[in-house]
Nucleic acid binder design. Sequence first.
RNA 1: GGCCUCAUCGUCUAACGGUUUAGGACGCAGCCCUCUCAAGGCUGAAAUACGGGUUCGAUUCCCGUUGGGGCUACCA
Length: 486
Amino acid sequence: MTSNNIRVRFAPSPTGYLHVGGLRTALYNYLFAKKNGGTFVLRIEDTDRARFVEGAVENLIDTLKWAGVDFDEGPGKEGSHGPYVQSERLAIYRKHIDLLLAKGSAYRCFCTSERLDQVRKEREKLKLAPKYDRHCLNLTAEEIEKLLQTNTSFVVRMKVPEATTIAFRDAVREEVEFASDALDDQILLKSDGYPTYHLANVVDDHLMEITHVIRGEEWLSSTPKHVLLYKYFEWELPLFAHLPLLLNADRSKLSKRQGDVAVEDYRTKGYLKEALVNFVALLGWNPGTEQEIFSKAELVEQFSLDHVNKAGAIFNIEKLDWLNFEHLRKASDGEVLAMLKDEIRKSPYSANRYSDEYLLNVIRAMRERMTFVRDILDKSPYFFESPAEYDASVAEKRWKPETAGQLKQLAEEFSGLDRPGKEQYEQALQQVAARLNIGNGSLIHAIRLAISGVGTGPGVYELLEILGKDESVKRIHHAIANIQHE
RNA sequence: GGCCUCAUCGUCUAACGGUUUAGGACGCAGCCCUCUCAAGGCUGAAAUACGGGUUCGAUUCCCGUUGGGGCUACCA
């Protein structure tokens, strides 16, 4: 499928679940790759052993698969640039660290974390940038040898040049510049032998021949360190594209505290993958047209880094709900049926009590009235069980002293009908109303309350038809016996 | 605090110096339709953060202010 050399990657940390911001980043990478005939790589950045969560990788892959954001190379889909899990690439990083050490672009640091804390505090007091004081940069070869011999634990730091400017081009932010003096001598190799993000990321992006690094804006500040590393290794720079962050309603970075951030949370809440993908695609990107509803294929067709925004975007659920409604109505009756059966299985109702034909009728009646498939159960439980109680405010308004007698006549009329449809119910009701010399409306509202228990929902005749004659008549009699007016 | 970065309706966004009484969408309000609720149709309220420049002309370019966000870990 790859007609050129464009290669992008999504590089999450397996710390639990896929964040919706991560989904957005993965999606943009995916769309960019598909649009340009490139390759989309999934790489697992598990260099922090303390934060590793069992099963997180599987969960990540499963969630990506659910969302339809498929990768071309990655764990379980080995290509020519593997392995795709960083903890399996330790020897590679070690080799590159040695290279840096030999060139003098990096140095060993034997300082204890206690000393580091102290240095930090002192510099903070002096209002200086919180940087390492380069104590170990001045160690002699003999001193280093001695420390190594005694197995003193150490880290490897990058040697940042003094008084220069590090500039790079960003596809969404154009030129970005940093003064090297503001940069810390970043740790590249931790004392446990694992690389930090900065080293592993640069080495892997190069080795995996990544051409475009599309990632969240939280990485913008550390990009000069990465640029420096590319320079030390004498590697060609990829094109960076830093995406605006997804925000909470108060404009802080989207966090768990203020709502659901895990893709699986939205999945279990009943959001369609089509809606979620459509929604996050629009958070930070626009097609340049007035189109709002997109299929995945349309997103691929229209996606471009040129239309990526700079400012952070608030994750606004209301629009997501609307998109869910829109995508749900695009689903076929059969697709909704399958989803509805799933919901019924999770509900107190018994799954095989209702025929497909019956459920399909319910779906057609509720089509324009649901945002989630679950709404069918929540908003119209009367399709699944007789009303146990009757809405008091509706009863007060629609159930008059004479209503019981009128409905009794109507029920009798219905009983005499032979396999009635909507039209027959309507005719019967009109006849009874005429006979009683009352408007159709008073009968209609009363009967709705009687058969559904509530005052809202699909048309009454449709309700009667779906429920069937026997069930409807039964419910009417039950209502007559149980609804009190005033 | 320092560095980086961002700034159009409540929210997501359009506008790439003049075609703009700043457009669309979500949400909100009203009207129509109607047996209710929806759906649908129509209408409405709602924004260029502020101050200086540059220019015949600034939402658009420059500077500053203010405000927001990110980073500032042997986390990614």
